[in-house]
């Protein structure tokens, strides 16, 4: 068995394969735009590991994304490119460590409280970079050279060349899809979904829920960092907005648009949202307003995603839909009370 409801990730992988021809066909602008979509898509897929598969709605993933970019900016030499082979793992590890601390504290809460606590931690990081003097404060800071991937002086991938940058990111996106597919079918992923569906039962069976969800949270943060690192490299600039809650919310919209129960759906969600934005920008100066209305429209037409999000945020009773339809399932009402009381014991 593989992850459920995930038959279409092969389709997305095939799509990525076709997309590899893009730099040969389209002008550079579109190649860079596609790169941007892929990077946001990777971040959205990473976020969905905790939101869709873990049932935990996080609002600090924007901070993980931006933080990775800041780590690149702060560790890069001023007049030379950073060496990718160590600066990327360093950025990912640094963000994973931050995710470990934030997750360790946030995962003591559930539902709305989890959303609020992760939001608060994300905003703390935002203000840290906004107000502190280093890294350019609210102005942000430039990354003058793209990181360099070279072995013994021989450049393997030239990130200054948009096509090569694109291909690298394309391969990363495919790799993330395959990795997530694998993990979700592995005992780890099965346990994660079990804890989402019925935490009380999963716990009674003996699954260490806290460790499980913390592991997922850190992994998700690390994959988000991967996207953030390359996004900052592509942009050549980092600023505090890159780690604000607004970005977290956009990632969440991509997840909902693409489908919470699919591995590659959020990547499609990213493409849909960013494509829409691009078209609207050309059509009207009130594009943000129209975009907002369009998102509301799309979500209302296919409410399953939103309902699942509400389930994660407010518990099964709030969603109204599928969970209540199933007869004698988990008892969400008294679960939370008893789970809490033992955690304080």
């Amino acid at each position: 068995m593989t992850a459920p409801a995930d038959r279409h990730s092969w389709l997305v992988l095939a799509l990525l394969l076709v997309l590899a021809a893009l730099p040969l066909l389209a002008p550079g602008y579109y190649v860079q735009f596609a790169t941007k979509i892929l990077l946001m898509g990777i971040a959205a897929m990473a976020l969905n590991l905790v939101v869709g598969f873990g049932g935990l709605v996080s609002l600090c993933h924007g901070a993980f994304f931006g933080l990775a970019g800041y780590v690149l900016a702060l560790t890069a030499p001023r007049y030379d490119p950073a060496a990718l082979w160590w600066s990327l793992p360093f950025a990912v590890a640094a963000v994973a460590l931050v995710a470990l601390v934030i997750g360790a504290l946030s995962l003591r809460t559930r539902g709305l409280y989890f959303i609020m606590v992760t939001l608060a931690f994300g905003e703390m990081l935002f203000y840290l970079f906004q107000d502190a003097g280093f890294a350019g404060g609210s102005d942000g800071t430039f990354i003058h050279y793209k990181p360099e991937l070279a072995v013994a002086g021989l450049t393997l991938v030239d990130l200054e060349a948009p096509a090569q940058f694109f291909w690298l990111v394309l391969a990363l996106a495919a790799g993330v899809i395959l990795l997530l597919r694998h993990l979700l079918a592995a005992p780890f992923g099965r346990a994660l979904r079990a804890a989402r569906d019925n935490e009380r039962r999963a716990r009674a069976l003996g699954f260490p829920i806290y460790r499980l969800q913390l592991g997922a949270f850190v992994l998700s943060g690390a994959l988000t960092a991967l996207a953030g690192y390359f996004a900052a490299a592509q942009f050549g600039f980092v600023a505090p907005q890159m780690l604000g809650w607004h970005l977290s919310a956009i990632l969440l919209v991509m997840v909902v648009l693409g489908g919470l129960r699919t591995v590659a759906g959020p990547l499609l969600g990213a493409a849909a949202l960013m494509g829409l934005e691009e078209v609207l920008k050309l059509a009207t100066e009130h594009w943000k307003l129209v975009e907002g209305l369009a998102i509301i429209g799309i979500v209302l037409v296919s409410p399953a995603g939103l309902r699942r999000l509400a389930t994660a945020a407010f518990g099964a009773s709030a969603s109204g839909g599928e969970h209540l339809a199933a007869p004698p399932r988990s008892t969400a009402e008294d679960t939370t009370a008893t789970d809490r009381s033992i955690r304080h014991a």
Binding site: L183, P187, R190, A191, N198
Partner: peptide, 26 residues
């Protein structure tokens, strides 16, 4: 209290997995 959206087999497998040597194996 079971995993309603999973098959009966998946339910049983989760139970076995939970007490296996590496319940969270990647």
């Amino acid at each position: 209290t079971i995993f309603g959206a999973s098959s009966a087999f998946e339910n049983a497998r989760l139970a076995v997995q939970a007490r296996a040597g590496r319940p969270l194996a990647l």
